[in-house]
């Protein structure tokens, strides 16, 4: 006779924390490929560096906490954190940026709170916010995306990228034109009002900001796959994206006073919107627990992303929006106690 728990377990897949995290990693691949296509192999180097740092830091922390290293590493949460942080870093960020970011993400972000399942903040976003505040120069050196007809520009190859990352070679700004180029969102924000329309048009791809729209599409694809695999529920991504689009739509009304004419679609397919909505905001540990609470939580994130993008000093607001909403989770959970009530379905009320 077949073991019963095995039969029952088959009905829900994936079954363990490790499998869930593996699904998340697989879901990241389309976006990652698009990212690599437009910004070169630097992102892959970031991922490798972050993963190595993550495994080392995790092992040391678990040893110090006298827990099972095997269990901690096989749950895959540290690797997912590494991937998410690496994806938010500029492709040619120095190696120590990766290591420092992982240190902040895992030490104060995770283990000081008691490890997996106990962190109130999204570890990757904590690491990112720390880096952005402390090293603004290194963190905003984005490459001009390649492989689009307008720029006709070559990206640094793998070897060059490794050299730059490790600091043995400096960026040859003459060779790689506009290496410290601002992201489209940044450009729009700082454009002079008279150039605004041309700036927006110049940044426009098919639906979003050029190049970025493809990585956003990739992350959307991965996110939809996670939804289908039931790794995440629709509540958080839908509320994040709906509210973000709604904010852009409202800001497009001329009476609203905002001069920036960014369409909702441009807003959704620029920056880290899709990565944030499907992969970062949905981190279950730091998100609200009840489905109703998740809608509130997601709406808050969407709104804050818009506020920070439009009025804040940073070009992208996903990290701060997520961290700020993480703070509100205990309150949301407190007020979202679901309690079923007896009712007769045939009678109204």
């Amino acid at each position: 006779m077949q073991s019963l728990s095995a039969i029952v377990k088959q009905i829900v897949s994936p079954v363990g924390v490790g499998q869930i995290m593996c699904t998340v990693l697989v879901a990241l691949l389309p976006g990652l490929l698009a990212h690599t296509y437009f910004f070169g192999p630097g992102i892959v180097i970031n991922i490798v560096l972050c993963c190595v740092a993550s495994v080392l830091i995790e092992t040391v922390c678990i040893k110090l906490r006298k827990r099972s290293v095997y269990t901690a590493l096989t749950d895959g949460t540290a690797i997912v954190t590494a991937f998410l942080l690496a994806l938010t870093l500029p492709p040619l960020a120095p190696w120590w940026i990766c290591v420092l970011g992982m240190l902040v993400a895992l030490l104060p972000g995770k283990h000081l709170y008691g490890g997996t399942g106990h962190n109130p903040f999204n570890p990757a976003m904590l690491g990112y916010a720390f880096l952005l505040i402390c090293f603004p120069l290194e963190m905003t050196q984005w490459l001009n995306p390649a492989n689009i007809p307008e720029t006709q520009q070559l990206l640094p190859g793998l070897i060059d990228s490794i050299r730059i990352t490790l600091g043995s070679s400096h960026l040859d700004t003459a060779h790689w034109d506009a290496i410290t180029m601002a992201t489209p969102l940044d450009k729009i924000k700082h454009a002079a009002p008279e150039n605004l329309i041309s700036t927006v048009q110049g940044s426009q791809g098919f639906i979003g900001a050029y190049a970025w729209e493809w990585s956003n599409l990739g992350f959307l694809l991965g996110g939809l796959w996670m939804l289908w695999r039931r790794v995440i529920s629709w509540h958080i991504p839908v509320s994040v994206l709906m509210v973000l689009a709604l904010c852009y739509a409202v800001s497009n009304i001329p009476l609203a006073g905002s001069a920036v004419q960014v369409t909702p679609l441009f807003g959704l397919f620029s920056g880290a919107a899709m990565l944030g909505a499907f992969f970062i905001a949905t981190d279950p540990v730091s998100a609200a627990a009840s489905r109703r609470g998740q809608l509130i939580y997601g709406a808050g994130i969407g709104f804050l992303i818009f506020i920070i993008r439009e009025f804040g000093g940073y070009p992208e607001g996903v990290a701060f929006a997520v961290l700020l909403m993480n703070l509100t989770v205990p309150t949301i959970d407190h007020y979202c106690k679901v309690k079923a009530k007896s009712r007769d379905k045939h009678e109204p009320g």
Partner: peptide, 10 residues
């Protein structure tokens, strides 16, 4: 292992 609050139980 620790709860990751995935909400499958609810």
């Amino acid at each position: 292992v620790a709860c990751i609050r995935c909400a499958r139980c609810s």
